[in-house]
């Protein structure tokens, strides 16, 4: 009887393995200086595996140390004060202070989602694709930082930690006084400018809003033409420019409205029988 073949772990003879390795070397030889690729197994898979282990360990410790909240049973007739949405929506609940519900709860979230979706199509800067750079993408990065970090995160922090009963402002170290009296002195912008007639006020408000978008678009056009040149604007195209201008001005408008309310007690900029802004 012949000697049984010595097999490796996978049931292949050593000479087979060696032959396979020799054969493969010719296939995977480097294609030149630009070929910086490595095999996913093991280089990528091991990073993922170690990350997963660390994160699972962290989650286990967190789940052992901190219990999920469970309050008293649901009582539809007893409304807590304040009633807060889940924390990730508190940025939106916070801008309810400054905008009507149809605006803060529907229009702005839809604009945020659409704005994020069109981002790759309006950003035609070919640089900064696949590496970190600030120098080559200043405007994009500042816009994103303003919208994402300053507006979204700061508003969530305000809504979570600074708002108490009646959605009044309380510092985290202040006790919540349910009977805190806050004078409602905010007035509409047309009133501030001396308009007393209803329709004159409405016309003034509408022209302020329309004027803001018209002048803002023109200013943006001028700024971009000066910074990047007319050739860039032509390449960028009218559709991309107007979409960018509309979304950008809407984002700035949220900041302006917050400043107008906090600084000048302005309630609405535009009052009409149908919608108020």
């Amino acid at each position: 009887m012949a000697e049984p073949k010595v097999l490796t772990d996978v049931g292949r003879a050593p000479e087979q393995v060696a032959a396979a390795a020799r054969k493969e070397k010719t296939i995977s030889k480097a294609k030149g200086p630009g070929d910086d690729k490595v095999h996913s197994w093991p280089h990528l898979v091991r990073i993922e595996f170690l990350c997963a282990l660390a994160v699972i360990a962290f989650m286990l410790v967190w789940a052992i140390l901190v219990d999920a909240p469970l309050e008293e049973p649901a009582a539809p007739t007893r409304t807590p004060n304040p009633s807060k949405a889940p924390w990730y929506f508190l940025g939106l609940q916070e801008i309810l202070v400054y905008f009507d519900p149809w605006h803060a709860g529907v229009v702005i979230p839809v604009l945020i989602i659409l704005g994020l979706m069109v981002l790759p199509y309006i950003d035609i800067n070919p640089k900064g694709n696949g590496y970190y750079t600030y120098e080559e993408r200043k405007f994009e990065i500042w816009t994103f930082v303003l919208g994402f970090h300053v507006l979204w995160i700061v508003l969530i922090i305000v809504g979570t930690f600074m708002r108490g009963p009646g959605w009044n402002w309380f510092w985290p170290w202040e006790p919540w006084d349910k009977h805190k009296v806050v004078a409602m002195t905010a007035v509409d912008l047309p009133y501030l400018f001396g308009f007393r007639d209803y329709w004159a006020s409405a016309a003034f408000g509408v022209s302020v809003v329309v004027g803001y978008f018209a002048l803002g678009t023109a200013a943006l056009y001028g700024a971009i033409a000066k910074l990047k040149g007319r050739a860039f604007l032509k390449r960028w195209g009218a559709a991309r420019f107007s979409l960018t201008a509309f979304l950008f001005l809407n984002m700035i408008a949220i900041v302006l409205k917050i400043l107008l309310r906090q600084g000048f007690n302005v309630k609405y900029i535009m009052v009409t029988p149908w919608i108020n802004i």
């Binding site: 490796t8 049931g11 393995v17 390795a21 493969e24 070397k25 197994w41 898979v45």
Partner: peptide
Amino acid sequence: GYDDTPRNRVLM
């Protein structure tokens, strides 16, 4: 198995 050959790394 776990042979450390280029072919096997791709197959994994």
